[in-house]
Design a binder for these strands. Structure first.
Lengths: 193, 193, 193, 193
DNA sequence: AATGAATGAGATTTCATTCAT
DNA sequence: AATGAATGAAATCTCATTCAT
């Protein structure tokens, strides 16, 4: 995995993220990366022997970070509150959605290391969804979620809802609340109101 | 090999869609396309002189088709019912979401034709969101949607909700109903129930 | 040689000249030609089965035309007067110089017909220079040209002098006179004047 | 095959010249060049990212070299003597004429670098003609050139005269003298002789 | 550790040319 | 005669990757 070298690997991953977001998998190249980092192209190979190794490494670290923060949040909150905090977390890491859409292109990678890391990532991803679903289950037990809805569907709803961005990105907190509100209460006027 | 047989352009677009979904923008190549269609690579250039021309043509036709069906549905239904039918429509055309994520890579296309078609597409896309938002507004007037939610946010919710797929894709109709139910009523148990 | 067809072959050659002058041998293509003539690309093949056949045909006809006019002028004038009239002729057909510079690229043509026509052209070309040199010889006999100059060199001087164009192309006749004056009398002031 | 051995850029330009003279702009290809240099085609792209970049680089260097030698000659001679030495210089660099005829094909080059270098070249070219004309003016002041001839026309005559090659290329010096003699004194016998 | 140099494989694209109608 | 359709060959160019220093 080639960690802890002298060259600032964190910067390398940061720049990788930037390039991936800007240009997508196809536009991402060691040529561009080395130019942005102002190092020789061949130097990157001292750290990652394949393009896909770097990309999957970046992706894995990203998902891992999200997971870790999810765990932390889970230990501090309960029920739908946890879900709401997770929602905010997903907002902060909204690249994840883009990376997921990119993932499929890596499936046929020639690098075994990359393919292996993808499997690990899928594992994490699965775990993440399990956590989400499980939290829904707990919220149901607390009476916070309707019993007639499949856990996975509700979980997925929280995860994808952040794709609905308001035109003006102003207030993250307010946006999170709105999203959460819709998911919890729906768009119909409440009966009693 | 079948000289003189006029190429079936519909088939070409079909195969284009297939390849784009399978491999993404980067993986899509005239080489692969020509192999799948069993024609010479250069033959494709008789129809589309740039790779991006073909891709944007496919995308435009796709969005147009969705738009047309949206119009039709709109003329037959009202209020949230319209939204629900649109939801089902989005499910049938769920490639649209993938294509949207691909769109950004086409921005710097060297083909002017492609760039123009992208502009047209953006126009259609804008119109589509306007229709969605407008329908939300009408639903509000019918008292079907809470007044405190921004039209665009609700619209966007309908559009993106279909990304929440149940594990087992069995029952499209059932799934659509569930999604719609969540959006309309939220995941919390109703107070009175 | 496929002459006398219904399609206006003269127009085809005219357009060929235009394209060759505009874009050079490399830029000339049946694709562009057919577009300019508003006919199908394949139609051109009814007249010329190879690109180089058309080009060499055009060139040959051009050189032939110049030759014919040279002959005519020769029959009407004598000595340096003939040379002067030829000079004007070369001005009217100044494409010839461009075509000559293009000629070498055709040497390795795959079309035997084209290679043969090149040989014919070279023959004409040789004949043309023979006529020029011969006329110089006759002018010498008339005492109009210095005896110490090689005929070929003087001949060549007349032929190439038209490449010296005045900045403002205004007056062709005046220009011709100036050129002729320099060739005949040189740029030094005359001793007795 | 000789990895790591730094490419000799001078040799690259030499071979470029050879190919351009042999085959013209159209016949010139990186494939042929790489074969002649016994390197991989892609290696050339490490030095010049566009075909036209290489060609214009070569051309610019060529014109620059001629200019520099012109300047040197100018500082050592005066009047028509300078012109005569320049004439010999043009003979040594007679490729220049071929390159000029090629120039127009580069006008629509897609490479901005190439287009820029063309502009620089045009600048040099303009300067060169200015030097020529200016030298004619000085020769006039010395009484060596007739006052009734436009400077530019005389200048152009010197420049193009070298296209008149004697059949047998034997004696460069003798040829130069003949050309110069014609330009200075004309082809007519002198009155007093 | 880092890098300059070189390369091979492949992608996009253009055209001359053929052939059936 | 004329044309629509298809094709093969080649050219330009881009990169991931290797290797010697």
């Amino acid at each position: 995995m080639a960690r802890q070298k002298k060259m600032d690997e964190a910067e390398m991953l940061k720049e990788t993220e930037k390039l991936l977001l800007e240009r997508g998998y196809e536009g991402f190249s060691f040529k561009a990366l080395s130019a942005n980092l102002d190092i020789a192209r061949s130097t990157i190979y001292e750290y990652y022997s394949h393009k896909d190794d770097l990309i999957t490494d970046y992706m894995f670290i990203l998902v891992k970070k999200v997971m870790d923060e999810m765990e932390k949040i889970k230990s501090e909150t309960t029920g739908l509150d946890t879900m709401k905090e997770w929602l905010k977390l997903f907002m902060r890491y909204d690249q994840v959605h883009y990376m997921i859409s990119m993932r499929s292109q890596l499936d046929q990678s020639e690098s075994e290391i990359a393919r292996n890391r993808l499997k690990q990532m899928d594992g994490l991803h699965g775990k993440m969804f399990f956590m989400l679903s499980n939290q829904v289950k707990k919220a149901k037990e607390l009476g916070e979620v309707r019993d007639d809805l499949p856990n996975e569907l509700v979980a997925s709803f929280f995860f994808h809802s952040i794709l609905s961005r308001p035109a003006n990105d102003e207030n993250i907190e307010g946006w999170a609340n709105k999203l959460n509100d819709i998911i919890e209460n729906g768009v119909r006027p409440h009966k009693e109101s």
